[in-house]
């Protein structure tokens, strides 16, 4: 990893529509750029692939959460009903497992849902109180109707003039320096 430039976070290109953004992202990848990110006001399926990003590990985290909730929920009930506080209810066995299914199910869902949300936030690094992209005034439109591609200065192929020329050649409406 090359040391990040101290005076520049990267170069930000603005686009009018999703097609141009996806096209620019694809071309940037073909040019060899890797340290970049695209910003859009709604999820664009093609963008993820155009940037050549990996599949997320989130489903695995959710599965583990669900399994933990399921086992934890059942074992808690087993331990309470058969070991810690055994009560004879109408002669049923102490480990009357069919009666434990509803709570086991609810705990599975609860833990899986919590891991989905907390996992998503953690992998995304949210909350992020400060991020350099917000230094671009027009970036406020990224949550309205504008599309942005930012090539970061820490990319090994980044060169201020050449990268700017490249982004302009992608039909960018405007290319701006991003302060760190």
């Amino acid at each position: 990893m090359t040391p990040a430039s101290t005076e520049l976070y990267g170069l930000m290109a603005e686009f009018d529509d999703p097609t141009r953004l996806v096209m620019a992202a694809r071309r940037a990848r073909e040019e060899g750029y890797r340290r970049m990110d695209a910003y859009s006001p709604y999820p664009i399926e093609e963008l993820h692939e155009a940037l050549g990003l990996h599949q997320t590990r989130l489903p695995l985290i959710v599965l583990m959460g669900g399994i933990a909730g399921c086992l934890g929920g059942f074992l808690l009930q087993y331990w309470v009903s058969a070991i810690a506080y055994p009560l004879n209810i109408a002669g049923r066995p102490l480990n009357s497992w069919p009666a434990f299914i509803p709570v086991t199910f609810e705990m599975t869902i609860l833990f899986a849902a919590l891991s989905a949300v907390l996992g998503m936030l953690a992998l995304n690094g949210l909350p992020t109180p400060y991020h350099p992209v917000f230094n671009v005034p027009r970036f406020a439109l990224a949550t309205r109707d504008r599309f942005f591609l930012c090539i970061e200065a820490c990319d090994s192929r980044f060169d201020r003039a050449r990268t700017r020329a490249f982004l302009e050649s992608c039909e960018a409406k405007e290319v701006t320096d991003v302060a760190p």
Partner: peptide
């Protein structure tokens, strides 16, 4: 929380949202 609409974030976001929908469906019936 500093949401900026990054493509990486959207991808995980959509995965999480779909998984939550998949989890909420049996939940609501239960």
């Amino acid at each position: 929380m500093g949401w900026r609409g990054s493509a990486r974030h959207w991808h995980r976001y959509e995965t999480a949202y779909l998984l939550l929908a998949g989890l909420a469906t049996p939940l609501v019936i239960s």
